[in-house]
Structure formats: structure tokens, C-alpha cells
Simulated assay, not measured.
Amino acid sequence: MKNAIADFAAAARGMPVSHVWRGHGSALFVELGNLTPRTRRDGSPGEPQGEMGLMIGWSWRIEEERSILCGSWSDEDLWAPSFAKLLGQNVDKLTTFARLPEVMISLSGDLHISSFMTSEGDPAWALFDMRGPAPITLCCRSGQITEE
């Protein structure tokens, strides 16, 4: 699956962060590239979806050059201004790290978004590629990167 991460990283390089939003609980969604509007089942507007994206279910952090701006356990008042700093930044690098694969996106402006699971089970992240005829999702299952 290293090739899948390398392919995803190559495709994401240079894409701008177009939208950042909070899902259920502390779930973080980072949408990259052109946005497509979405509609919820009840007909109300949903969050727009990027060409590619990252979801971290929980245990995430956003870093600057020398400090952590905020994380999933931070005061929620810090989230919106930190999310705003990400908008318009371009993807410089996407990598996995650690024995049980965590994910990090490094952005222009020396900003970084990383997963960092602190509970039992697998790291709770997924990468999405919506550009083709069928969506591609990469995630960590049983300690391995898998494609769903």
C-alpha cells in the first residue's frame, strides 16, 4: 500500500485547502481542490466536497512551525481560527509515519495537519480521492494501510 500513499501524495501535491469543517464530535475534514456542492438527505445544503480530502475521526492536531495551534482536545474556540489559517494553503507533502500508520499533510505557510490516535484500536483517519469514476479511500485497518 506504500504505492497507494505515494500515488495519493503525488496527486495531492500543490492542491489548495478549499474547505475545512468539523464533523460529528471532533471529526476533522479537510477538502482539497475544486469543491462540489452536496445536499443532505433532508434536502438541506451539506458541506461541499473536494476533489481529494482527509478525514481524521479524532486525535488530530494542527501545527505551526514551532507550536501546536490546536487539536481535537483543545478548547473548541481555537478551532475556527486555526481552520481559517489552513484555507488557501497548498499541499507540499503527504506522508504516513509511525509503526501503526498515522497521516500528516504538510502545507505551504509551514502548517501541518496530523492524526495522532491516543486510544485503543486503529488510527482513525481516511484519505479520499473523488476525481475518478469511483471514489478511492485509504485508511488504516488492523495496523495496515488499506484501500476501501
Rank of each mutant, 00 (worst) to 15 (best):
T36V: 10
Q49G: 04
W58Q: 10
I62C: 01
P37E: 08
L54E: 07
D75C: 09
T39K: 06
K85G: 00
G143T: 07
I145C: 04
T39H: 05
I136T: 15
E147Y: 05
S26R: 10
A80E: 14
D110S: 12
D75G: 00
T146H: 03
L94K: 09
S18K: 03
P101A: 07
V91F: 07
E51V: 10
K93D: 10
R99Y: 01
L87G: 03
P16T: 13
G57S: 12
A80Q: 15
M104E: 15
W21L: 04
G14Y: 10
E120C: 03
P135L: 02
G23R: 09
C70V: 04
S106W: 02
C140R: 00
E31W: 09
M55N: 12
A11D: 04
S114T: 12
R66P: 00
L94M: 12
I113L: 05
A9G: 11
N90K: 13
L100P: 00
G121C: 05
I5C: 06
G143Q: 03
L78Y: 05
T36E: 11
R61G: 11
P123W: 07
L111W: 09
Q89T: 12
D129C: 06
W125Y: 05
L35A: 01
R66N: 14
A98M: 04
I136Q: 14
G57N: 06
L111E: 02
C70D: 01
I105F: 07
A11F: 03
T39S: 10
Q144K: 15
F97H: 13
A10I: 02
G46Q: 03
D110F: 09
V30T: 03
F116Q: 09
H112R: 15
P16K: 12
R13N: 14
D122R: 08
K85T: 12
A4G: 04
G143V: 04
T95Q: 11
L28H: 07
L94S: 06
G109S: 07
S44L: 13
V103G: 03
G132V: 09
W125D: 05
I62F: 03
I105S: 05
D110Y: 03
G53T: 04
G88I: 04
N90E: 12
G43H: 03
R131Y: 05
L69N: 00
N34Q: 14
A4K: 13
C139S: 15
E76S: 10
G53W: 06
A9I: 00
S59D: 13
E148G: 13
Q49R: 14
W21Y: 15
F83H: 01
M52C: 00
A98D: 11
M117Y: 09
P101Y: 09
W73I: 08
F97P: 01
E51N: 02
H112A: 12
K2S: 10
L28A: 11
G121Y: 11
D110K: 14
E47D: 14
E148Q: 11
S142E: 12
L54G: 04
T118G: 13
P133T: 13
